[in-house]
Design a protein around this nucleic acid. Structure first.
Lengths: 192, 192
DNA sequence: CGACACATGTAACACGTTACATGATTTG
DNA sequence: CAAATCATGTAACGTGTTACATGTGTCG
């Protein structure tokens, strides 16, 4: 539920029309998070239905300008100050794939983990290239690319941890082996 | 798009009815990824419509058993062998919030970053507790909790990196300052 | 009997995606 | 004028969520 508020935010500095909103959104995140134009129009209609924007139906040059309403500003401010819901987290497709593979007999889970790892690393190189190619003052794109890189890095770390964990639990169940898997947050300080 | 395939996978070892599928799903991931019962039924209907499951309408004890079809097994195998789409990545609500806050004048982004950081750390402690409380042989729950912990750790790392990056770019633009932000993948080997 | 858990389902809605259709404006 | 680009929209569909309604079996 980010796109509606992102559009509201783009309307803070004056009324704009649909395609321009899409352009401004993609100017910041485009290569990483493309935004379908159609979605901009449907989202604007829903925002107008909910009274968060108004359309300036002046027919000027066949452009339809939208303006944020006081209610829209209020909702935007409230959204901004609310931390994103972290529980329950989204169900991760990769994790579910591994769980499913674990349950079905005759599947080499280690091989699957490695395949996914290679794939993630490839994609990470893609975003590293995007980040390197970004203009030096393009903070937004750098932040977005960073976010994706940190996310993918987390996936790689999980794949490695899962591999280690399964190597302990899949063999003839050596139950007496101590749990040696590293704490994910070992290197993180609780206070910055 | 994971739930349909998770249900298919649970049907591999014999026909089961709706509520039992929900129970088995939550037995593995419940505390982390609860699954609404209603969604199980609607998903089963959609799977039946697509010919991936068949219902054993024997009316036994008012339970409706579903059985996976050959087409369902085929689709499940294909899904399992396909790596999840990583591009384009999902639009991250937290990242968009920060971008929006950056654009609106008169907002203390540093304060927002810290608030989010504290919140994420709290949630991480929650999942650490879940992991600690899990049975020693409950590999599934450990994997799921780990996945969430690594994901949240990535978010914290991003928040810290964003904070550092903004401290460089928000002051009177000292353009000559070299880019010192650490590479997210610095400690990661490409080959495990 | 009454309460409770078991079990199934539906209705309405949200956001997101894709594909397609249509008009207006600029430019070679 | 013709083609390309700008600009708006719609239609159909997908997964996911919540709230509500309904029936069935069991047990004190």
């Amino acid at each position: 539920m980010s796109v509606p508020y992102a559009l509201l935010a783009l309307l803070i500095d004056g009324p704009k029309y649909g395609l321009r909103l899409q352009n401004e959104f993609e100017a910041r995140t485009g290569e990483v998070w493309p935004l379908n134009v159609g979605q901009v129009y449907t989202t604007l209609q829903r925002l107008e239905r909910d009274g968060l924007v108004e359309s300036d139906d002046e027919g000027e040059r066949s452009q339809k300008r939208y303006r944020i309403t006081p209610a829209g500003e209020h909702d935007l401010a409230a959204w901004l100050r609310t931390p994103p819901d972290l529980v329950p987290p989204p169900r991760d497709e990769l994790v579910i794939k591994v769980l499913v593979a674990l349950q079905i007999p005759g599947i080499d889970v280690h091989e699957i983990l490695q395949a996914h790892r290679r794939h993630v690393i490839e994609v990470m190189q893609r975003y590293t290239r995007i980040k390197a190619g970004a203009a030096k003052d393009d903070v937004a794109l750098a932040l977005v690319a960073d976010a994706e890189l940190f996310r993918l890095e987390g996936i790689v770390r999980w794949l490695d941890a899962a591999d280690a964990r399964l190597k302990q639990h899949q063999p003839p169940t050596p139950a007496e082996v101590a749990d040696l898997t590293p704490e994910p947050s070992a290197e993180l300080e609780v206070l910055p």
